[in-house]
Amino acid sequence: MYNSTRLAILGVAHSPTSIFDPAATPARSAFGLSMLVLSVTLAIFLTVGGMLLYAVIRFRQRPTDSDREPAQIYGSNQIELSWTVIPILIVVMLFLSTTRVILDTQAAPKPSDALNVTVIGHQFWWEYRYPKLGVVTANELHVPISDPAKPTPTYLALSSADTDHSFWVPRLAGKTDLIPNRLNTMWIDPQSPGLYLGQCAQYCGTQHAKMLLRVYAQSPEDFAAWIKQQQRPAEPDLSGNAAAAEGQTVFMHSACINCHTVAGTVATGRFGPDLTHLASRDTIASGPVQNTAENLRQWIADPNSMKPGVLMPSMHLNDHDLDVITAYLTTLH
């Protein structure tokens, strides 16, 4: 039944971020609970709303009515008691079902095969660290799919470098806030490969709107390959590419390195996203901009034009420097 309701809802309102299209256990159990709560509240609405409508129509004043006031009825203890007890019973039922889902999600035992990822919210981008695997990346989270028979969920440890943020990918799980000076956790176990979208759900400053989330769920093999590639330091062979080689020099001699890391080089800044494997990402600027050479160039020339209020300044580079830095960045696979 849940499935058919789900399909009916999706028919009316299609969205890649619908909470009615769950693809992982936490989202699925929230969805199950939501169906229960929705049907109970719908039943209450139809009953009480129906009675209200009936009363309003049935007891309206009619032109044929006499001038006499209607009978004055002051109350009835039996009736009061009944409409106190019935709601209490409904509340108890809803409370118990809710508690079960809370425990299923928050107190679920953590399997030994779980992957740990640390998520750090920044104004206005996401930092992802895979501590046991030695991988650091930004804005695009890669996780393995989880087989219900042999679950490999991903546990996210969430914190913030500045203001509050919230991690919300509706098809995977409800949201959990990233709060500075505090460590929160949540888990996801997407069961089929694909790209799951979401975005920051706690107002965090000017560009809260463009702090998008992209979660790539991959088959175990693809995920292992991705990890392997990310673990390699970026050692692009620049010998045949004069522009990129020059770009590297310009990059390493400009302020970029104070804010950005390129592993294995002097660039070790942590204020902005890690660029070691920038070219392996589909988007830049935390989601809203496709990662093409043209966009990269415009971004570096004037980040504000693409994301007004962003914390990366325009470096006022000349056209030549822009060209060569772009050429260099596109080699960082």
Binding site: F45, G49, V56, L94, T98, V101, G174, K175
Partner: peptide, 28 residues
């Protein structure tokens, strides 16, 4: 009378929001 119907709906969506796991999706 409009108040009665609208308040009824507001109360019912409030119940939805009170169910924490549903709220994790709905809040904010």
């Amino acid at each position: 009378i409009a108040f009665l119907f609208q308040f009824l709906v507001a109360g019912l969506t409030g119940i939805m929001l009170s169910a924490a796991p549903f709220n994790w999706q709905l809040s904010a």
